[in-house]
Design a protein around this nucleic acid. Sequence first.
DNA 1: CGGCTGTACTTAAGCGCTTCAGTACCGTTG
DNA 2: CAACGGTACTGAAGCGCTTAAGTACAGCCG
Lengths: 352, 352
Amino acid sequence: MARRPTIKDIARRAGVSESAVSFALNDRPGVSQDTRARIRRVAEELGWQPNSAARALSGERSGAVGLVLARPAQTLGVESFFLQLVSGIQEVLAADRVALLFQVVDGIDAECAVYRRWWAERRVDGVLVVDARTQDPRPELLALLGLPAVIIGGTASGGAGSAEGTGGEASSVWADDARAMAQVVDHLHGLGHRRITHIAGLPDLAHTARRIASLRADAKARGLDPEHVRSVVTDYSDTEGAAATRRVLAEPEPPTALVYDNDVMAVAGLAVAAELGIAVPGRISVVAWDDSALCRVPHPRLTALVRDTAGFGRLAAEELLAVLAGSPPRARESERPRLEPRESTAPPAAAY
Amino acid sequence: MARRPTIKDIARRAGVSESAVSFALNDRPGVSQDTRARIRRVAEELGWQPNSAARALSGERSGAVGLVLARPAQTLGVESFFLQLVSGIQEVLAADRVALLFQVVDGIDAECAVYRRWWAERRVDGVLVVDARTQDPRPELLALLGLPAVIIGGTASGGAGSAEGTGGEASSVWADDARAMAQVVDHLHGLGHRRITHIAGLPDLAHTARRIASLRADAKARGLDPEHVRSVVTDYSDTEGAAATRRVLAEPEPPTALVYDNDVMAVAGLAVAAELGIAVPGRISVVAWDDSALCRVPHPRLTALVRDTAGFGRLAAEELLAVLAGSPPRARESERPRLEPRESTAPPAAAY
DNA sequence: CGGCTGTACTTAAGCGCTTCAGTACCGTTG
DNA sequence: CAACGGTACTGAAGCGCTTAAGTACAGCCG
């Protein structure tokens, strides 16, 4: 409750000027070893911590970065991806004493408004942008504002955050969805599947678009019928995932394998299959994109594309700190996702 | 990229002093209607926004509150509770332009360290504390620091954040778990169940303790055998939820109804039952505490205790803002949870 | 008309820190 | 020994805002 000690208190107690204290505590030259040590000791004794506002005001750095999550309330929170990502981000930020400002809003316009406000108020030094889209207004806005940023999930090919453009653009970290999709197709094709449906997420998200495009390319490369190897889009919710599953399984020539764009939809799909009396993996194989507890709970346990989401977050945070330290924007690829075969995939019952 | 406009710019342009501008923009008396309007217009034109650091430095308010989530990485994120809560919190905070500092750490000691640092650095004006515990060191620390706080999920009876003690304690918002548990027991007892097992979460969380205690009290009040109406504890994870289910169902006189402390464990339990060939709700009824998409996905859909989690967050944020505005600490109860019967509960097969 | 009250402002100090321009003192060097 | 350079430090300004204290002027009253 007592007044926090300031640099002035330390100065008085150590018998030096305020600036000497500032130099000493910031590892700047201009004070002798002895004095530095003495000042440090006094600061320690007094339990001094820099006042972040004062520092921000003179140093022009707020020591915080921002992250906005723009999602409708009901989509929130079921998937494990997000908090994992954040925990990775924090690990890196905390090491540098950088705080994370977090805000949930319900749409991309509100998100942009938050960026404007944060930047105008000088609340953040930079931001991490999630859910990169194919038509994304954010990189442009950020460039306009001059707000340092790292786009998570965007890349040159198909999405926000190119690092190759005209320069002055934002950094990005991305996962190789094309490669990952190829792995999934490899696995299923190897088992004998020729009719594969990808229950995709929101089509305007960059990574969804990349996955859809790669599936099409993979099918073509293997000479598979694009009628039977295709994507259907949803909003990532369990509801639409279930509905899409129901629709697809009711077709005259239903697929023998389903690839879901997240864990929640995969579990929902599994439930639909169970309800319809369709055996998994007997009559249909199921793959989930992104692993989580959800995939390991049901029977059969789901074959999943596992990736180190926290690591992805760490990479993004590292890149943002690098950008803040002045390094030029670039696109960094995360560790490759890995397919973990479990019980939900097997050869199709009746190969044709 | 251009220099942000400051109050000085506005002052020059409007032909008044800086303080006049400050008064005008903060709705303080001392400027005429005309001048006020003119200043406002200029500020608008220039796109001025207050520099939060400068304001914090003079006003002694940082305009931000903090929230620390202390959980091991693997427990993170599967349940929907947390993000819903945060989205409710934000709704209220955003209306007052208060930012939320968010940090994920891996234990309560780290959490306490974050509080100390935030407060020492004057980064936050107050904090929201989640996961109240039975033996909770945090209220004491916060009181010691003088850091305004609202404890979410704590209450006088069995948990952190009493509002009745010696004064100077933190506010709290809480849900009436006793009443909720009574509703669940009512429902199950009414269907004819006499052997009920509560698959509880972490026993040192305050709300878990309250639920366990109320189940015991309810059983006693109804004259039910405490051997057959009881709680077993877990860590909230799907793994332990599944394991506990397996263990309980293997007993010589297994329960006819299971009450799970969260949605994830309930779904895991359902999977275990399916695996063991135990029909739900035929041979066993299942209730989930907290509703989410997860509960509506599987077959049968889970009877669940639904509550307005976002509303809970709103309440907490409102209370924190009230405390910051100087109102005395108090304990506020959230809207009562409501039991939503679905397909997973039915009368027991063989009543005895 | 002198003195009073109230309104509409201005001046200046200060929040805690950084930083730039000194100043004081030392040891070298030609 | 004067001139120089370097180290260790001090002083003061300034970041953008708030706010207490001061000024100027109008209106009102006895």
